[in-house]
Design a protein around this nucleic acid. Sequence first.
DNA 1: AAAGTTACCTTGTTATGCAAAGTAGTGAAA
DNA 2: TTTCACTACTTTGCATAACAAGGTAACTTT
Lengths: 119, 119
Amino acid sequence: MKELENAQIQMRKGILEFCILQIVAEGEIYATELISRLREAEMLVVEGTVYPLLNRLLRADLLEHVWVESLGGPPRKYYTLTDKGSSVLQGMRQTWDGLQKSVSKIIADSNFYSTNKQA
Amino acid sequence: MKELENAQIQMRKGILEFCILQIVAEGEIYATELISRLREAEMLVVEGTVYPLLNRLLRADLLEHVWVESLGGPPRKYYTLTDKGSSVLQGMRQTWDGLQKSVSKIIADSNFYSTNKQA
DNA sequence: AAAGTTACCTTGTTATGCAAAGTAGTGAAA
DNA sequence: TTTCACTACTTTGCATAACAAGGTAACTTT
């Protein structure tokens, strides 16, 4: 069902940015490694999504990067969080918690109402 | 910080559709009432978001509506879930669960890595 | 050198929330 | 009866962001 597939994409939106900041907060990482980490967590993403997002986060001063030579292959851009990125990330954690609570509340109320309706 | 405000909007996106289907699943409801329910759950939304979304869900055959006269005021469109809407909603519940698990995994791994780094 | 691998980037499309302004039915006050 | 207030639904224009697909470039292997 294509509606559902699209809904999955839409739900991931915005949360992806949070996940990326969270992963970079662990320590410096480059894009290809980051993508593997997201896939491990079953956040299905593709390159064409991640690179523009990383560049946006750079422009917004939430991330910074350094070029590092690699042993066998092209050089890599390693990303780290800036101070600003760190504090925005904190705010995002609260946003995520709030969102989870809101959805839980809606589902809980829903059970409440339907139970009452049957009575 | 405007980055954070935007992140909140982006995170809500997509999840809003899920919340609306969930609320309509309880029983027929009209838009103004629906908006109050969302606000109670601290899902901050405005009319200009909800009406187009409801119309999209109608066009996608996830919802249907009937006009009902009201005692003091203009008539209201009461929405209910279609069978298709009901099964899409079930899929969305799984998507939401999966998303929560993914984010939890990322945060958990993050703690794991940073704890190790300090050692 | 030719082919393969790794890594990063860009363009065009589509979806969607929001702000702001608009339309319309009902009832009450001036 | 004209005006105002309230409720309810709608529309337009804008900005953001994920994705698909294709591209560029460094380095290694054959």
